[in-house]
Design a protein around this nucleic acid. Structure first.
Length: 495
RNA sequence: GGCGACGUGGCCAAGCGGUAAGGCAGAGGUCUGCAAAACCUCCAUUCACCGGUUCAAAUCCGGUCGUCGCCUCCA
């Protein structure tokens, strides 16, 4: 099997064939840095991070371009509200963006152009469109003449008549057709502006992606990604601009990620349920969100989000790290050459093929969790081997599994943390979520230890039961010490 | 109104014509002073509903009901 990609334009899952053998050029719409990132951004960039990493895993030389739309109405408005210079606000939010993305383990793209530093190529493209009769200038504005592009609507599958009938477009007398959109906006007082053949002004919303992708990837490239909501009008307009200017088909595969719903409701400002991911990271480890976004639904489908689902993801990721810790300790204890039959040979033999098969299926992180689950299960089984004569073989098998997991993690990027450190942070966050006093818990555990040493089982059990009511679960270790962890409160099961 | 997506066990979610993955929760077991963790076993004769095509359909076609998204800034 080889990589297949669901393409929005054709509506089909097609075998992936890059334009140029061995190379992939991909473009993903970046953020408009006017505020901190929310869950929707996290989903989008985690999804395409997986795409990027998997293509590299397959051996492609990937060029990944993701822009910053740092000149925009929203930035200008927000900056004015805060009495700031627009570019300073953009810079501030770009830095915050990196903070959030880094925490999520998202690799930096190869090229990250900004509108503010791409004005030359934007103006050039607008000029080309004007020259070709696809755009017209009015009073310092330049609009795209939608009627002149016969294929307008081909991505979002809308006919021209339908769009006009249902259009809720603000009245603008300068436009020849209500569907026409701005390529260049004449400067207003106090706004960022650049010189142009049409007077001072700034780029419209959609043109930057066309200009940047052409500049950094060429007129035609392989993959273009973004959120579902961008299909219309943003990507539709992008196609009109790019293909109008270059005269050739621009994108081979269009990838669109689904939305994040909060408790089955659309995330929106009016509902007040737009979560900044930096706020979420106060309560959950960033990797929990990454794992959740990869494993809970295919990237094209909607994903529902709430604390119960995140708790489940947190628990699962902790299980993975617990298994890694146990597996690595076990392997270290029996670090010797071993030749001979191995336990769990089937899991070892099939892991990579299963992982690839999952990812080959339109980058299905959900399916990729299957072989992963089996590998961790086998790891735990091996590390629990008690018979001494079987341990060298088990340790060898565990070592192989750890290698395989590390390979898959080049794509998933979930297990790079130190298990010890991760689990401590995980527990601290879980304790905080339940409002637990960590020191008090430790004190109670010490009390129980004394009771146990005196074999006062009733007293020891009473303390454990009391802690259990708070969600604290105790684990007595063979060496006499006691580990503890916190269980998140489960959703009450419906009758 | 137009375009599109979706409806699978208590919950989440794969499935893309060949006889229902996986995770969570639940039940039983091994282990343990008792536990927990880990591991093992069990847990949908059935895929919103009704027709149709087929040797064969959760999967294809038609219809009904329901949920949601886009059409306006939005990942």
């Amino acid at each position: 099997m080889s990589l297949k990609i669901q393409d929005t334009m054709s509506g089909e899952k097609r075998p992936f064939e890059p334009l140029e053998e061995g190379k992939v050029k991909m473009y993903v719409c970046g953020v408009t840095p006017y505020a901190r990132c929310h869950l929707g951004h996290a989903r989008c960039y985690v999804a395409f991070d997986l795409v990027y990493r998997y293509l590299k895993f397959l051996g492609y030389a990937v060029t990944y371009v993701r822009n910053f739309t740092d000149v925009d109405d929203k930035i200008i408005n927000r900056a004015n509200e805060r009495g700031m210079v627009a570019m300073d606000l953009a810079q501030e939010n770009i830095e915050a963006f990196y903070e959030d993305m880094d925490a999520l383990g998202i690799a930096r793209p190869d090229v990250e152009p900004r509108v503010s530093t791409s004005i030359t190529e934007i103006v050039e493209m607008v000029q080309t469109l004007v020259d070709k009769g696809l755009a017209y200038a009015v009073d310092g504005d330049v609009y795209y003449a939608v009627d002149a592009f016969a294929e307008y609507g081909k991505l979002s599958k809308r006919s021209f008549d339908e769009m006009q009938a249902g259009a809720r477009v603000d009245v603008n007398e300068k436009k020849r057709n209500p569907m026409d959109f701005a390529l260049w906006k004449a400067a207003k007082p106090g706004e960022p502006k650049w010189p142009s053949p049409w007077g001072e002004g700034r780029p419209g919303w959609h043109i930057e992606c066309s200009a940047m992708s052409c500049t950094h990837l060429g007129a035609s490239f392989d993959l273009h990604g973004g959120g579902r909501d961008l299909v219309f009008p943003h990507h539709e307009n992008e196609i009109a601009q790019t293909e109008g200017a270059t005269g050739v088909a621009s994108v081979r595969y269009w990838l669109h990620n689904g939305f994040v719903n909060i408790d089955d409701e659309k995330m929106s400002k009016s509902l007040g349920n737009v979560f900044n991911i930096s706020d979420l990271f106060q309560r959950y480890e960033p990797l929990v969100l990454r794992y959740f976004l990869i494993s809970a639904a295919h990237y094209r489908n909607p994903i529902n989000f709430n604390d119960a689902l995140l708790d489940q993801a947190a628990g699962r990721l902790a299980y993975f790290y617990e298994s890694l810790r146990k597996g690595r300790r076990f392997v270290r204890l029996f670090d010797e050459d071993y030749e001979g039959p191995l336990p769990c040979q089937d899991v070892i033999d099939t892991f990579e093929a299963r992982f690839r098969e999952a990812m080959d299926d339109d980058f299905s992180g959900v399916k990729a969790m299957d072989p992963l689950s089996d590998a961790f299960k086998a790891l735990n089984e091996l590390a629990s081997t008690s018979k001494a004569r079987k341990k060298p073989a088990a340790a060898r098998a565990a070592a192989l599994l750890l290698d395989l997991l590390a390979q898959a993690d080049e794509v998933l990027n979930l297990f790079g943390d130190d298990p010890e450190a991760y689990l401590l942070r995980h527990r601290a966050k879980a304790a905080q979520r339940r409002g637990l006093d960590t020191a008090a818990v430790a004190a109670r555990i010490a009390e129980r230890l004394q009771a146990r040493n005196k074999r006062e089982w009733a007293e020891a059990d009473a303390i454990r039961d009391a802690l259990a009511l708070q969600g604290v679960v105790l684990m007595d270790r063979p060496d006499g010490d006691t580990d503890w962890m916190v269980h998140d409160e489960q959703e009450p099961t419906a009758p």
